[in-house]
């Protein structure tokens, strides 16, 4: 997987991600992108270094109770340091996810959530597994078989799509592994897969999609597939 990622979250989003002020479900998509993108890995290291420097150069709190702090210091140093096992609490690497006879690799950031639950709902050539991210937005894995179009729709809220495997194209571009698409309210598009390549994405949606054309409007009540 050495191809270059072309679509990145952009510096303002990375900055909020590094500061920890980005909403959790959006931050999850950004984090999974970073797992797949060496360019943004470096930028995040640089942005963290800037934040660290700001902390180091910042002024100490004006009101400080010295006895409080002395007590805190003593309490901390009375605790044992952690051993190797306790130190490794993080998901360390990518994990596999299974859909029928297919196996996909998903990035480290999603490892824990995917291992908790991947229950697929399938309709025709599209399948969806909601992740237990439990926030305002809906976070799910979205599988689209080859040669399939998602009917044209308008977004009522923010839609973030991160390609995890394969490729997806829409009116604005062609997106491969690691590419992140951010659609804001009132953007309209018709994403589809190529004739010979299916696609697995991470999808973060803040509101149901609104299908626009003819019979596909019947899909609007079937939102659980996309939402």
């Amino acid at each position: 997987m050495t191809h270059a990622v072309k679509y990145h979250p952009g510096i303002p989003l990375l900055e909020q991600y590094v500061e920890g002020t980005l909403e959790a479900d959006v931050a999850l998509a950004v984090s999974a992108h970073i797992d797949l993108c060496p360019h943004c890995q470096q930028l995040c290291l640089d942005l963290s270094a800037e934040q660290g420097l700001m902390l180091e150069k910042s002024a100490p709190a004006a009101e400080l109770d010295a006895t409080d702090l002395d007590q805190m210091l003593a309490d901390i140093m009375a605790q044992p340091q952690w051993n190797g096992r306790e130190l490794n609490t993080q998901p360390q690497g990518p994990v596999q996810v299974q859909l029928k006879d297919k196996t996909f690799t998903v990035p480290r950031a999603l490892a824990r959530l995917v291992e908790q639950q991947t229950k697929w709902t399938q309709l025709g050539s599209i399948a969806n597994a909601k992740l237990p991210a439990g926030d305002k937005r809906h976070v799910s894995l979205l599988y689209i078989d080859k040669d399939t179009a998602i009917p044209q729709h308008t977004h009522k809220g923010l839609e973030i799509t991160l390609v995890l495997s394969g490729r997806i194209v829409d009116e604005k571009g062609s997106y491969g592994v690691g590419d992140i698409l951010i659609n804001t309210p009132d953007d309209t598009h018709t994403p589809r897969t190529l004739p010979d390549e299916d696609c697995l994405c991470l999808s973060v949606l803040s509101a149901p999609l609104q299908f626009n054309k003819g019979i596909t409007r019947l899909l609007n009540p079937l939102q659980h597939l996309f939402y």
Binding site: E19, G20, Q51, L53, E56, Q79, P80, L87
Partner: peptide, 28 residues
């Protein structure tokens, strides 16, 4: 600061400054 004490072994000076590491712990 408790994490700084307990996890000091995880600090890797080839990856960044001490202040960066402490900032990331506070953020988390």
């Amino acid at each position: 600061m408790l994490n700084v004490w307990r996890k000091a072994r995880l600090f890797d000076p080839s990856r960044g400054c001490a202040s960066t590491w402490i900032f990331t712990i506070a953020r988390n």
